[in-house]
Computed example of a mutant assay.
Amino acid sequence: MSTAAILSLALILDAMFGEPRWLWDHLPHPAAVMGRLVKALDARLNSGSGRRTKGVVAVLVLVAAGLIIGALLSLLGPIVEIIVAAILIAQRSLVEHLMAVVHGLRGGLQGGRDAVAMIVSRDTADMTGPQVARSAIESGAENMSDGVVAPVFWFLVGGLPGLITYKMINTADSMIGYRTARYEDFGWAAARLDDLLNLIPARLTAVLIAASGGVLRDWPAIAADAKQHRSPNAGWPEAAMARALQVALAGPRSYDGEMRDFPWVNESGSKSADAHAIRRCAEMLCKTWSLGLVLTVAIAAFF
């Protein structure tokens, strides 16, 4: 069975069943296992002098682990590959998290704040309704790239070894890729490699969202907005989603009690996003997933 055929079945399996919570109540989730490895490397290596070099060593360990584990699992056959890929592709759970924010907002502002706090790292206690909605939409767009398109891309490129290695580095970036006193040097390699691995997937996600939303004609404006974003990659899917929904995203927000004046993405769009806008975002992500599935099936059929 070809890599693209295995991937097509994995995408469908994830869409049908999502995260089997009953299973993860009894077994550690693969993402949690990756997190433990990153935490162990952090505890072991992130001290004393030469922290940037030690961070490079940690990344090399993660890459080697991802390649070896992926290669060993691949030897077990296509059924195992399908199941593992489905577990590590997060389309259904992404949509479920967005809909949780929709339901939270409909129950009251505090419900929306509580729900969005589960998927963003910024301060949520004093968010207005539109801020909650924008945060959810931004998270949905960015995680469509990190959690769906990038894993799909790296599976097509390198099978399970490629997918698991990507997830290792993405997990490391989410844990140690920060510009803080502790991680400025140690997390440098993880953050830079994550940027590199997401370079193509982020832009591909933007193309898929723009195509699904009928705004490919706005590509020059999408590219211009993306380049203003503080992240070299996250701005691309956010800019495409902002145009598709005709809303303004990003802008000022608070982290650790400090307000930061980030530029707007699609500044001329509506700044009054609400629960309906989040629902439309979830629908757009489903359309984007469907387009990606069609392309993957086409690759399986022709190659």
Rank of each mutant, 00 (worst) to 15 (best):
M1D: 11
T3S: 12
T3H: 11
A5I: 09
I6Q: 04
L7N: 01
L7C: 09
A10C: 09
I12G: 04
L13P: 03
A15G: 09
F17H: 14
R21C: 10
W22S: 14
A32S: 13
V33C: 13
V33F: 10
G35R: 11
R36P: 02
L37Q: 12
D42N: 12
D42K: 07
R44V: 04
N46H: 03
G48E: 03
G50E: 04
R51A: 06
K54M: 06
K54A: 04
V59G: 00
L60W: 14
V61F: 11
A65N: 05
I68L: 15
L73C: 09
S74P: 02
S74D: 06
S74T: 15
P78D: 13
I79S: 12
V80Y: 02
V84I: 15
L88T: 07
I89H: 00
A90D: 03
E96D: 14
H97D: 11
L105W: 00
L105T: 01
G107C: 10
Q110I: 03
G111H: 03
I119P: 01
A125H: 06
D126R: 15
P130K: 09
Q131P: 00
I137L: 10
S139G: 09
F153E: 05
L156C: 07
V157Q: 06
G158L: 02
G158F: 02
G158V: 02
N170I: 05
M175H: 10
G177C: 06
R182W: 02
E184Q: 14
D185M: 08
A190F: 03
N198Q: 07
A202L: 07
A206D: 08
L208W: 05
A211Y: 09
G214D: 06
R217N: 13
R217Y: 10
D218Q: 14
W219Q: 05
A224R: 15
G235K: 03
M241D: 01
A242C: 12
P252F: 09
F262M: 12
P263R: 04
E267I: 11
G269D: 09
K271P: 06
H276N: 14
H276M: 14
R279Y: 11
C286E: 15
S290Y: 11
V297S: 07
F303T: 12
F303P: 10
